[in-house]
């Protein structure tokens, strides 16, 4: 049965209709049109669909669309302020932390969630915080370096 959901996505009040058993991932992609949220597995194993829900990193394929009623959802589309990129976005490009880019939206959200809670993470802390996000192109080296560079710049800002 179709339900109406009112929520806040990237700072905007958004209403969408979805089925009771529809995932937040499908609702964001197919109902709201936010296709930066990617499906790599649909089972919570790859992290490509990561979004931040009320400040917590979640796989949107493991959340139902209806569950976000009255809550706050942040996706990759909300990272930049107008034309001004978030430091994470800039550093990912500068450090070549992406190749094919399909995992990048998820990594950016996971890294954002990490740095909010821990502005000065060690390499090991970064690696464990990003362990729920799969990347098959980079071997993670340049991703870790991009997050380290972001952390340094944000602390100095």
């Amino acid at each position: 049965m179709t339900q109406l959901v009112n929520t806040n996505i990237n700072g905007d009040t958004i209403g969408f209709a979805c089925e009771a058993d529809e995932t937040l991932l499908d609702a964001l992609r197919n109902r709201v049109g936010l296709k930066g949220v990617k499906e790599g597995c649909g089972t919570g194993d790859c992290g490509a669909c990561s979004v931040i829900l009320d400040g917590t990193l979640v796989c949107s394929c493991l959340v139902l669309g209806m569950e976000v009623e009255g809550r706050k959802v942040e996706t990759v589309e909300g990272l930049s302020k107008g034309a001004e990129l978030h430091t994470l976005q800039t550093k990912f490009i500068e450090h070549a932390a992406l190749q094919c880019g399909i995992c990048t939206p998820g990594f950016l959200m996971a890294a954002k969630a990490l740095l909010k809670n821990n502005p000065d993470p060690t390499e090991e802390e970064i690696r464990y915080a990003l362990a729920g996000n799969l990347c098959r192109c980079t071997g993670y080296d340049k991703i870790v370096r991009a997050v380290q560079a972001t952390a340094t710049e944000l602390r100095e800002a």
Binding site: G36, V76, S80, Q89, G101, T104
Partner: peptide, 19 residues
């Protein structure tokens, strides 16, 4: 230099097969 597809890929604008 920076890659031309970088900004699309960090902002969610890049269009993949399912998009």
């Amino acid at each position: 230099p920076l890659r031309p597809d970088g900004i699309d890929k960090v902002t969610g604008r890049a269009r993949y097969g399912a998009d």
